[in-house]
């Protein structure tokens, strides 16, 4: 544009010069709220990470030192013992994990269905029931699976039973929440039709709401089965049975090669189940 005479786009550039100059709009300043929020987050991060009474003492050098120092778990990772997977202990552990996940998912999903119907504005019989069920569900969901297991181990002793009870409650929370969220988005036509033909509230739920959420409900129940399978690998750490108990035993006796063998086996089981379940779920929705 410095040499308009010789440049091939001469007309173009003169036209551009005639146009009133446009300025790039100024970038809006971040709002005070945003600024305060970001400063607050930075402060929380520093407080959480610093090496003081209320921080975790986060430091990259320490992480690097830890990882480069020779240590048992990483040495075990180099010599994974897959032979452990053919042994009876691991086989029984995997079988127990599957059984626990199956029993607790099916029973939990069964209880979650009516709760999910009542947990939505549309399906709740009245405001009080709605609020009560919502509160109940929020409390159930905010208790992590391992904590349920701790409580049930204290209540009924160690073994697969407390594990199944823990997963049962965990499943209720998950399936109820996900299904009731779908109910908020269903088509209201069938609901009105059911009401217009004189259906009672329960009949309306049965004939207008239930068929619409059935595919989603089934899909969430399968998803919950995957979650339970994964969770049952850790319940054994508090004495609630499953493959976690086997992993914990090998860990305590320091046999990391075997720990990793079982973990890899577990990984394969989870990924296979996830693939199958995803295929089925995709067909459902």
């Amino acid at each position: 544009m410095n040499e308009p005479d010789s440049a091939p786009g001469a007309e173009l550039s003169t036209a551009a010069a005639d146009r009133p100059r446009t300025e790039r709009p100024k970038k809006p300043r971040p709002s005070l709220f945003m600024l305060g929020g970001l400063i607050g987050l930075a402060a929380v991060t520093i407080a959480a990470g610093a090496d003081w009474r209320f921080g975790v003492g986060f430091s990259l050098t320490e992480i690097w030192d830890g990882l480069t120092r020779p240590n048992a778990p990483m040495r075990g990772l180099g010599e994974i013992d897959f032979g452990v997977l053919t042994g009876t202990r691991a086989r029984n552990g995997f079988l127990e994990t599957l059984q626990m996940a199956l029993v607790s998912t099916i029973s939990g999903a069964l209880v979650a269905l009516p709760l999910a119907l009542f947990n939505s504005k549309l399906g709740a019989p009245n405001r009080i029931a709605y609020a009560a069920i919502k509160l109940f569900n929020n409390v159930i969901r905010s208790i992590p699976d391992l904590l349920w297991a701790l409580l049930f181990v204290a209540a009924v002793g160690i073994g697969a039973l407390p594990g199944m009870l823990a997963l049962f409650f965990f499943s209720i929370g998950v399936v109820t929440k996900l299904t009731s969220d779908t109910i908020d988005g269903i088509d209201h036509g069938p609901v009105e039709a059911a009401r217009a033909s004189g259906a009672s509230h329960l009949q309306m739920l049965r004939t207008a709401v239930f068929p619409q959420v059935l595919p989603a409900y089934t899909s969430f129940s399968m998803y919950c089965f995957e979650l339970n399978l994964r969770a049952s690998a850790v319940l054994g750490f508090v004495g609630a049975g499953g493959i976690g108990a086997v992993i914990n035993d090998y860990r305590i006796s320091g046999q990391w090669d075997r720990v990793w063998g079982v973990v890899v086996g577990f990984l394969i089981v989870v990924i296979v189940v996830e693939r199958i379940s995803m295929m089925l779920r995709r067909r459902l929705l």
């Binding site: 199956l102 049930f152 009924v156």
Partner: peptide, 30 residues
């Protein structure tokens, strides 16, 4: 499949089902 899977797993799993009736009472107690 669902009923069979549930019953099969529930009956074969090595759990002390006889302690299940205690669970609600114990939980309430806790």
């Amino acid at each position: 499949a669902v009923v069979g899977g549930f019953l099969g797993a529930a009956l074969s799993v090595d759990a002390r089902w006889e302690r299940l009736p205690e669970a609600p009472g114990q939980l309430w107690n806790i």
